[in-house]
Design a protein around this nucleic acid. Structure first.
Lengths: 334, 334
DNA sequence: ACCTTTTGTTTAAACGTTTAAACATATCAG
DNA sequence: CTGATATGTTTAAACGTTTAAACAAAAGGT
């Protein structure tokens, strides 16, 4: 079965290719004869004509597709974000091409190049460590672009993120009012600003309470499980009575430990997580956590990106969304 | 900063556009002067020329992109599959456009149309209920296409799936050797063959053991939580001592119930799941499940698809992969 | 010396659209 | 009845590549 072209429609309707194009795109409606238009539309229907996206894109210099490079698509955070962005893009008639850098800078760069080769109209990026210059270069090339989740303090780029510092700062009061005295903070060994801020916020929050101390353990990405286990072991030995997990994955590893070692939560140690996971549901006691407004983040990012695409002269805008503190995860979230 | 075109390279290198194209595509290598080729390559480098994918695709009638329509990308099963397929495609130089039908046939159809408009070179589909004719139509149009996970018994299309019937059948012996007498089976109200086979396999397995009976509860997709809760309540009242959850989501809902109601697993009721979830880790006792070979499924699907794309005359092939029975989920899977 | 190959390069059409500009005919004002 | 204007449609160039075919010059064979 041969592909139906504009030419085929034109031929069958007895008009020029241009006419068909005009009718299909709703242009020159005031000029075109109603009957002709009707006839063309009928033929289009009959032949079930579908425009060739490639040809259109080539001509219009617009592919109606966006690229999203996630940090690690295996992580629920990324995949939920991807889903939201995809839906959002979809509604605007855009397709989303998704990549995952797996936190590797070279891979990130490769993905971006691929996306640009494919002429995506804009990018939403969860940038890995050390990718600042790369982002800068993209910006210099006037590539419409929005950072999500991650941001670089000395880079003036549009971004959507959450109040990492403040949320962490505020959350510590939870431990304080519980009367916790020694708080363990688990962080990654990273230069990523948003993670550093989670740590700093927590530390400052504790310090300023004047009623508790903290100990920070730095975990390396490639040995999460082992290092988290070691960190918690050490913490418990040194009388830590509350633990703040600054990320998703750290939290999961931590809970696995506490579960396996039958540590009573929150009696023996109190816990707090940045980010939510389905697994929390399955812990016998409620596990409080800081929730990021995923849907808003995704929507805002797409919105910002579209703005950039429509007006490249627009100055970069940084949106910082509020997180919320959730005391107990309802069993009835679907 | 202007886009660098083939023309720009040609100009700077003092040759025709064709020469640059030939050199870049490694064609006519025997004819082209080594020095000229070298010079061209140098200019390409200097100008950092990137071919325009659209123009290439239009000319070559190949977009080097595949479409994957997942059943529900929010489900780990789908997203893991997506990740594998994406990686596999990537390695072959193909991009993956992902959609999620959310088990809705109209949405499925819309997504497929979008993907075809975008001229993807092939499709991998987790088809929702009742989409047989649609698949058939695609096949008639000679669209390279592979079904994954789901299949339609009377449709001769390439597909990759697992031994749903046999796996369920065999798994029941687990309950039998435990001496379980009344087994509850939780299934969806669906016409999807793979799910029906999971149910039938289990039923036949139990029947043929001559030592236990079963009761089947049908759950409707849109009220999973409530209906699963009701079903389990009813089962427990009628002396069911083992439950087989035929899917991921049913299992999660079920475990949530058992957890909340402090039902002892496996002492009071034994459980068995089709599919694995991270949440299983967080249950105090090990939860046995049937594992699908996700990676193999994804790889095979891509492989099959590429075969189809290379030779459209190839007859459809159905690959059925083996599942494995996992007794206890290791706490150290990353 | 002349024809044939070989080597190296260019020309030009094609892929399937969009759209400015040109064209043709009908309608209208004076 | 004529020039202007409104109405309806077509022509042709462009988007950025690929590639068959044509061309030109050098090398080889007799």
């Amino acid at each position: 079965m041969k592909k139906v072209l504009l030419r085929d429609v034109a031929e069958k309707a007895g008009v020029s290719i241009a006419m068909v194009s005009y009718v299909l795109n709703g242009q020159k409606t005031d000029r075109i004869n109603k009957d002709t238009a009707q006839r063309i539309r009928k033929v289009v229907e009959e032949l079930n004509y579908r425009p060739n996206f490639l040809a259109q894109s080539l001509k219009l210099k617009k592919t109606f597709s966006l690229g999203f490079v996630a940090a690690d698509i295996a992580n629920t955070f990324s995949s939920q974000l991807a889903r939201i962005i995809s839906d959002e893009a979809d509604q605007a008639g855009y397709a989303l091409i998704i990549g995952s850098s797996d936190e590797s800078k070279p891979r990130f760069e490769r993905l971006i190049n691929q996306l640009l080769n494919r002429q995506v109209d804009g990018l939403i990026l969860a940038a890995p460590e050390g990718s600042d210059e790369l982002i800068k270069a993209l910006q210099d090339r006037k590539t419409p672009l929005v950072l999500i989740d991650r941001y670089f303090p000395d880079l003036l780029v549009s971004s959507v993120s959450v109040n990492n510092y403040q949320a962490s700062f505020d959350a510590m009061s939870e431990f304080i009012t519980q009367g916790r005295k020694k708080i363990g903070i688990l962080v990654y060994d990273t230069t990523l600003q948003h993670l550093k801020e989670r740590m700093l916020g927590a530390q400052d929050g504790i310090t300023q309470s004047h009623s508790a101390s903290y100990v920070t353990h730095v975990i390396h990405e490639n040995h999460i499980e082992q290092e988290v286990f070691a960190a918690i072991t050490s913490m418990l030995q040194t009388g830590v009575d509350a633990i703040y997990f600054t990320s998703n994955k750290l939290g999961i590893a931590g809970m696995r430990y506490l579960m396996n070692h039958q540590i009573a939560v929150p009696t023996q140690v109190s816990t707090l997580f940045f980010d939510e996971t389905e697994v929390f549901d399955f812990y016998p006691s409620p596990l409080p956590f800081i929730r990021q407004p995923l849907a808003d983040m995704g929507k805002k990012a797409v919105e910002l990106l579209f703005q950039q695409m429509n007006d490249s002269a627009l100055p970069p805008e940084s949106i910082i969304l509020e997180t919320s503190f959730v005391h107990s995860h309802s069993s009835f979230t679907q």
